[in-house]
Structure formats: C-alpha cells, structure tokens
Design a protein around this nucleic acid. Structure first.
Lengths: 263, 263
DNA sequence: ACCTGAACACCGTTCAAGT
DNA sequence: ACCTGAACACCGTTCAAGT
C-alpha cells in the first residue's frame, strides 16, 4: 500500500480494514517526498511493496522503477524486498495484479448483466478504461507481460474477471462459441484503443517526457497530406473513438448472436 | 525512416547493394554462431548495427539486447556502437524504423488504391500483419515506444506510411475528417489485434519462454466457465479474428462514408 | 578515422551476518 | 523474524588513449 493508514505495530496482526493491494488510498500519506522517515516502523509487506511500486510507476514511469530505488522509497535496502517478492519480474507481475485488482473495487464493473449484455459490455469496457486512464504509465505493462495462459488475454488479465465476463454472456443466452468470440473481439478492442489513448496521454515514455508542446510540425516536407491534416490528427478524440468503436463492436456481436442460434 | 541511405562514407559513399536495415537478407551471413571471426573486417555502420539488433531481438528477445552483447555479436566492443548510435534508446528507435521500413519492401503494401479503398485497406492491414508475424518479439517495441508526434500512431510509425494511407483515402473521395477517422480506427484495430496475436505466439516474453505445453489447467477452481471453455479459448483463431474484425471495420467506415458526404 | 581500456555510476541478485 | 553489508556479475555511458 502506498502507505496504508495503519502503521500497525507487530501486535495487531493483519487488520482487515487494510485496503488490499489493488485499491489505492490517497496518494502520499506518510510518504514524505518519496522517502519515509527511518523512524517509521511500518513493517514491510507484499501489499505495501506492490502498491508503492505502482505509485512509483505512476509518478516516474516504468524505467525508473528499480529494486534499489523502490527499497529507498520504502525506507529499506533493496535486498529486503526479496523476502516478499522473488525478483523484479515477479514484482512487475504483482503490479499487474494490483492494477487488475483495482477493477474489483469499481462498483460499476463486476455486477452481473441485469440490463442486458450490451449494458454489461459497456460497463466493463468503461471500467477498464477508467483503470487505464488512472495509470497511463503502468497500463502498457498489462499488454507486454507474457500471457501465462491463453484464456488470459490482455488487458483482462485476471481469471475472476474473465469468468465474470464469460459467465455473464452465457447467462444472457450466448452459446459457448459466441461467448468466446465476443471475448476475443472485446479484448483486442480494449487493448488497441486503450493502449493508443494512454500513449497519447504521455504514458509509456521513459523519463524524457519533456515534449515541447505545439512543436511546429517538423519533417513533414514529403508528406503534404499529413501536414494538411496535422492539426486534425492532433485533436483528442479518444473518448469518442472509444465509444464509437465499442458501439460498433456491440453491433457486430449482436449480429452474430442474432444471425446464429439464440438470444 | 529506418536509416536514410546516406551514411556518406568518406570515399565510396554508400554502396547501394548493401541491404538496408529494414529489409533483412537471409539470416546468418557472415555471422557465425552469433559472433564474427575477428578477422572479418566488414566495417561497422548504422545499418549493420540496426539489422543485427533486430536479428538479435528476433532470436533472443528484447531483454537480451544489450549494448555489450550487441557489440560482441558484431565483433566489436560496446563503446564502438556509440559512434553510430547515440545510445540504447536511440538504438531501439532505430530498430523500430528498420521494422517499419520493411513494409516499404513489401510489394503489396504501398501501392495506391487502384481497386478501391476497401482493397487498399486490406492490403495495408495484411502487410502490417506479415511484418508483425515475422518479428513477434520486436513488434511490441512498436507499441511501447513513445509516439513522438500525434500523427504517428502505432503501429504505423512512419510518416511515409501515414502519408500513403491518408492520401490513398482522400484520393478515393474521403473527406479530410473521414480519412482521419478511418486512420484512427484502423490503427487501433491493428494494434489490438496484432499485439494479441503476437503475444499469443510467444513474443513479448523475456528469456523465460520455457512454457510447459499443455499444462493441465491450474488455478481454475473458482472459474467453472473459464474451465469449461478452456480448450476453446486455447484454439488459435488469430487469422479469422483478424479478417472478421477487419471486415467489420471496413463496413463501419463504409457506413460512415456513405452516410456522410461523399464516395 | 575508427576502435578500445579503463573507469564511473548504477543495476539485479545471493548469502552470510547482524539485531 | 526481519533486515543489511559486502560481494558478484552485469549494465549504459564517457573519455582519454591507442592504432
């Protein structure tokens, strides 16, 4: 946890009001300019490590997240982390889990489809989008980490999520085949749209995000059309794009379901 | 551009028979088991560095590409590379350019739309897909490198490419607005689909790609539907997905163009 | 002109040792 | 039980020096 509100001494054991790794409380509590006072004796824990790692990525980007720096942020030497996390790779996997876990705290997302599957897909899509936008620099991690199983397609990298998705559709009358097809189409839609949105918002980048804003269009001498459309291409249409694309995806699934067997 | 053909050597200037970084000749010429004999005196050059880097990524993945190892592969110390490439970040940018440059050598891709824009989009989409599949481990690089300009949306990270795309559509009667909308939809379609396909094919991963094949479905105890659909989810439907999704995208664009002003 | 040796600051990771 | 010092192998990068 970034810094969970309890500095619970060794006595209290784990208190269940402690927010879990996914759901982050307000940024910066206890953590003063990136480093705790050594006198704080909040004990290390996997949760605290993962959530601090996520905060760190949010603030400084992926490249700046180092075992040693993360240790410093936690007021500890790097080697201590290995007691809770097997290594850097595993740390990043944990961050992905923490990210995905945030969705479980989004009231809108995991409810079953009571207003039809179209509404269900809308809610899920927008839930994932909120998560992506909340963590633009961490989101690419979700896409580039290996897909340990074929049924975990980015960005839906949580079994419980996938279960909710598939069972929701089946429950709405989709055949197995239709549900799987919808799942595939839905994931690539989300991945493409959100990755692009997030990278446009200045994610992905390393520590060199000092982009001169309104640069005067360089290197476009051999690209007259691009130059003509440059201003239009620069407009932020991310939300509209997302909604139109989602609408179209839903239409497509709809046609498939109606044209085939049921619903 | 990948590497503009002029590296103006002092004497002979550039030899045009040397393959450029994008278009790779057959693997392993000169390079014997990953390391040249020191007596070979093929001089270093930006092209040679970039194309060797791409080969290295294809073979060993992104994480294994190190300035020092790349130097070794080229029969040279790491420091020598800095004469041709400003640093590792720039090296990776160069690799992206080399990758994108490959498309320029794909006869099918860059022809203007003589058989209508639908066919044009089909050719472009499949061209990019061929490139992604030829370099599954390098492709994610295209998605995660910063988008230096808003008109260069991954995976179409070459101005000349974007120019061809947009001018092709405009030439087919698209309004500026329609062309830009189509460009946006097309890029997110490509990115989502290809990134997923490539990661399923075992790209992205670090050096730990020793995946037990046919693992007996672990951790699915709380996910009965996923378990039931596991086999179906594991099937490789990448090509069909791609074609259906592309077809649907073209339909969507078609409706927009017909419903709006022209064509 | 082109490459290298040596050095610097920084990594991830291990392990015996401290408290 | 939890953390650390010291060490190892490996990074990216700089720069004066070699040829």
């Amino acid at each position: 946890m970034a810094a969970d509100p309890d500095d619970g001494g060794p006595t209290g054991a784990q208190r269940s009001d402690e927010p879990d790794p996914g759901h982050l409380p307000d940024v910066d509590e206890l953590v003063v300019d990136g480093q705790e006072r050594p006198s704080d004796r909040v004990p290390l824990s996997r949760e605290r490590i993962l959530s601090t790692a996520l905060h760190s990525i949010d603030e400084e980007g992926l490249a700046a997240l180092t075992m040693r720096r993360l240790g410093a942020r936690l007021g500890v030497e790097a080697m201590s982390l290995y007691r809770y996390v097997p290594g850097r790779e595993a740390l990043l996997d944990g961050v992905v889990d923490a990210l995905v876990g945030e969705l479980d705290h989004d009231a809108d997302v995991l409810r079953s489809p009571e207003h039809g599957w179209q509404d269900f897909l809308q809610r899920m899509a927008h839930g994932v989008r909120r998560m992506a936008i909340a963590h633009p620099k961490a989101f690419p991690l979700i896409a580039s980490t290996p897909p340990e199983a074929p049924w975990l397609r980015p960005p839906l990298r949580s079994i419980s999520w996938v279960e909710t998705f598939l069972s929701g559709l089946v429950q709405q009358g989709f055949s197995d085949e239709e549900a799987v097809a919808a799942y595939r189409a839905f994931t690539s839609f989300l991945l493409g749209n959100l990755l692009l949105e997030v990278s446009q918002r200045g994610g992905a980048v390393g520590p060199l995000d000092l982009v001169d804003e309104e640069e005067p269009v360089g290197g476009l001498d051999d690209a007259p059309i691009v130059r003509r459309l440059a201003r239009r291409l620069g407009e932020d249409r991310a939300l509209q794009e997302f909604e139109e694309s989602l609408e179209s995806l839903i239409d497509r699934i709809s046609a498939q379901v109606l044209g085939g067997s049921g619903a």
